[in-house]
Computed example of a mutant assay.
Amino acid sequence: MTSLKNHLINFFKYKDLLKLLVMKDLKIKYKRSILGIIWSLLNPLLTMIILTLVFKELFRFNIENFAAYVISGQVLFTFFSESTSLAMSSIYSSGQIIKKVYIPKYIFPISKVLYSLVNMMFSFLAVIIVCIITDVSIKPTLIFSLLSIFYMMVFSIGVGLILSSVVVFFRDIEHIYGVLLTAWMYATPIIYPMDIMPNKFLFLLYSNPLYYFIAHFREGLLYGHIPSWELNFQCLNYSIITLLVGLYLFYKRQDKFILYV
């Protein structure tokens, strides 16, 4: 308990550095960009339009408010994909800093997730816009979609810590993870309804953490429902366990990072 308290104190001690790293990434991304951070809003809108035209017309999915259905799953998956990919390379890409000064190394992967979270919140505005345009009734249950984003953020930090602690020693993980993300996207009901999944493959759906996060997100936002206790438990369970595993692996390996970055 004392150790956990010390880690929390240490974390808040470096909160200004964390903020600085996030702001630095935002400035780098939108440097010399005319529209700047507005791209975080436009990108999901343009992607949604393309996906809606292709899948709605060609595959005839019988989903009410298909555009809102697609963008709600898309932005959450994009947040996870971007944040974990950036967090994965955050340690070895910051090797020169790590070698020169003492900084809690977990600051780097966490800063990448928080940077992606900022982008996500602008993309969330795009989701609201699409919902309004497609006549989705915006209800007070919208607040639960913010809880969904929080669950996903915690889960992404856990995955980011795991990946960043492994890729330092095995750089091939970076390439493997890119392929895994593609498979993970198609295994998640982002652009198709759950009921088209064959029964023999349902176990893949129910063992997929992203299925629960996206389902939770859609419950409050699209359907006006309060997510069930069971759904909340699944999201919280995946988030906390993944975070704890990530912290354990990261702390176990971090003293060796300096030898490989």
Rank of each mutant, 00 (worst) to 15 (best):
A126K: 07
S33A: 07
M48H: 13
L147K: 10
I107Y: 10
I157N: 02
Y251G: 02
K105N: 04
F213Q: 00
M194Y: 11
P44W: 12
A87Y: 09
S72N: 08
S72P: 07
S164I: 02
I28F: 08
I49R: 05
Y30Q: 05
F203Q: 01
A126L: 14
K19H: 14
S85A: 11
F61R: 03
F144S: 11
P198Q: 14
S148W: 01
D25R: 12
L249G: 06
F122L: 13
S40A: 15
K15A: 09
I128S: 04
I98P: 04
G95M: 02
S164T: 10
M194T: 08
L236W: 07
V167M: 01
F108A: 05
M153D: 00
V130E: 09
S85C: 02
S89C: 06
I149Q: 04
I162W: 06
K5M: 07
L247T: 03
S228L: 00
L163W: 06
T182P: 14
S72Y: 10
R218F: 04
V127H: 12
S164D: 03
I9N: 06
Q254R: 13
Y248H: 08
V168I: 01
S123E: 08
S3K: 15
P109T: 15
L204C: 12
F124H: 02
G220A: 08
W184Y: 15
Y92I: 06
G246N: 09
Y151M: 02
I107L: 11
V75K: 05
I28R: 03
F217A: 02
Y192V: 00
Y212L: 08
S137Y: 05
D135R: 15
H225G: 02
Q234L: 13
K200G: 08
H216Q: 06
K31F: 15
M197K: 07
I110V: 11
V130Y: 08
I157G: 00
Y30D: 01
S85N: 05
L222W: 13
K200Y: 09
L125W: 01
S40I: 13
P189A: 13
F61V: 00
L202G: 02
N43E: 08
